[in-house]
Design a protein around this nucleic acid. Sequence first.
DNA 1: CGTACCGTTGAGGTGAGTCAAAGTAAGTGG
DNA 2: CCACTTACTTTGACTCACCTCAACGGTACG
Lengths: 230, 230
Amino acid sequence: MMHHIHLSDVQQSAVEMLEKTRVTRVYTAGERLFAQDDMPDGMYCLQSGHVLLWHSDTFGYKTSFKMAGPGELVGYRSLLGDDNHSATAETLTACHACFFPKKELEQFIYSNPTVTRQFFRILARDRGPPDALLLRGQHLSIRIRLIYLLLIMKARHGQYEDDGTLVYNLPLSRTNIASLIGSRPETVTRTIKELKRDGVVFFENRRVIVPDPKRLFKEACIDSVPTGDA
Amino acid sequence: MMHHIHLSDVQQSAVEMLEKTRVTRVYTAGERLFAQDDMPDGMYCLQSGHVLLWHSDTFGYKTSFKMAGPGELVGYRSLLGDDNHSATAETLTACHACFFPKKELEQFIYSNPTVTRQFFRILARDRGPPDALLLRGQHLSIRIRLIYLLLIMKARHGQYEDDGTLVYNLPLSRTNIASLIGSRPETVTRTIKELKRDGVVFFENRRVIVPDPKRLFKEACIDSVPTGDA
DNA sequence: CGTACCGTTGAGGTGAGTCAAAGTAAGTGG
DNA sequence: CCACTTACTTTGACTCACCTCAACGGTACG
């Protein structure tokens, strides 16, 4: 789900204002766009690189719930909810990110019903029940959750080769993966080994290869192959 | 978090239209406002009673993720996301619910930035990372998750007595509770027993009594007691 | 006075977490 | 080019919180 906003009939003045006030910055891996409990002062649009969003609970456990890539917006939930950030956004790789200050951005959002609607869609579709529940349901084994993670990442981070192979370049450590599916790095390693043994998924460093995607869908009990953008 | 929309300076025509087209209906326990995969044709506002929202995954497992009570809106996520319903809304008790048809409702939402903003808030604050993650984090024991459930329900469904006791009337079965925190009815029973033994929480049928709320907060590592509406 | 549903209790099994240690890869500085 | 550090990954052995299955008790309702 790309976050492209259609600008066709938006008030020209609002767009110009937005263009004038936005700031593009370069980040190195491991930097933070914002931290949990910060007051949001704007929104970020990733132009290149990847960002991981994680929440730290009252016991200090960190749980990741989203990886954002090029073209995606980051930091909109708390901004639109008038809340402090409920998560920290940390770069996984070097990134180019564009920052839109709150005031001008809001003017833009409300400038036109079409734009408003786009933001409603982004917000409403962001990790709805399905995603969050599939990745953390106790009744689902780690193996299945790992497969679901790949299926969810497919739309934005996966790519089909000519021979039907599915390939990902995921800048995620075992620890990151564990954090996303509610598990532990050791268990992720073991599960990855198991998937390789069964010939379903091959993890080579940060590169993931799925020779026969249909087998993956079948194991997750998904018959109809979901298409890229939904 | 109540879903009261402030109508002070909304276009009168939009409000009138909304008032004219809304339909109030009475439901008995066990009825469905809408079902997963249905196309949304409007939104519901609960006037009395309680509704449980649950998602059924590809393996047929049902996972509940929200209980809505009087004053709350139901069915907005899919409507605003232009998606089919990703959950089923089933009444736990007899209910009065008011239905707003999609077309007129959208006119209302876009009629005024103040209203639009309210809906952004509702959507953005609906089960943000904290809620969903706390109730399903594997690293948290069932006991802690049960406590978190009570803490989350406190704002809307809990009530302080004069003596500082916290009392809930939750129309939830053990199975419902299990489904909300990602567990099983048997385990919920055992955990409830344990909490009673420790004198922290007393479940009497569908009535829940917390004699010393501070102990509850402490066990969940929450120092600052969250206030009702945020 | 069944029937049906919900809740409780007990016994037993296991998937995945934990802990500890060794292996690997990448980066740094002399 | 090679020691040295640092961070990540893998492996094995052990443990346990929770699930599963099965039986029983309570309560509502026609």
